[in-house]
Amino acid sequence: MADATLDATVGHVDPDDTSSLQTIELTVNGQTHTLTLEPNVVLLDALRERLNLTGAKKGCDHGQCGACTVVIDGRAMNSCLLLAALAEGQDITTIEGLADEDGTLHPIQQAFLEHDAYQCGYCTAGQMMMATSILNDKDIAKDPASIKEAMSGNICRCGAYKNILDAVQSAHRTIEGA
């Protein structure tokens, strides 16, 4: 089908034009990485395909499932909708950076293990990153209804929701008690 908008773009694309390549620095889990990439690379793909940090997952690529959730400057975000270049200078935490360096699991990871808060494990990194962000957010109440509402952008098709809720509440108690 003819597409006026698409056709109008043609003249602007120069296949040999590599000037759009840019070099950026991403700070992921405390480590700084220098990357040269085009501006249309989103953070999720930069992490997965360039840095081989494949813990954050692609489930929809459009902000509709939450599997790609990472924490940026303390706040959970959908890395599939964030241009990698715009994350420059920010503190990015992925699932690979959640445990202590000695391997001690973060309380949310420990709680997920004990409560069997997953099945296939594909949405799990996103669930946990969202959960850590919520547990650190004083503006989100920690009663079951509030946690469920705040976690609703993280779909678990296996339906392990009950155990995820249990795990988040358990981790909350652990963190509060610590």
Partner: peptide
């Protein structure tokens, strides 16, 4: 607890993609 839990919870499980 699942024996593959540590891998799934750390991002270490190798799904196809």
């Amino acid at each position: 607890p699942r024996i593959d839990g540590a891998l799934k919870l750390s991002g270490g499980a190798d799904y196809t993609a």
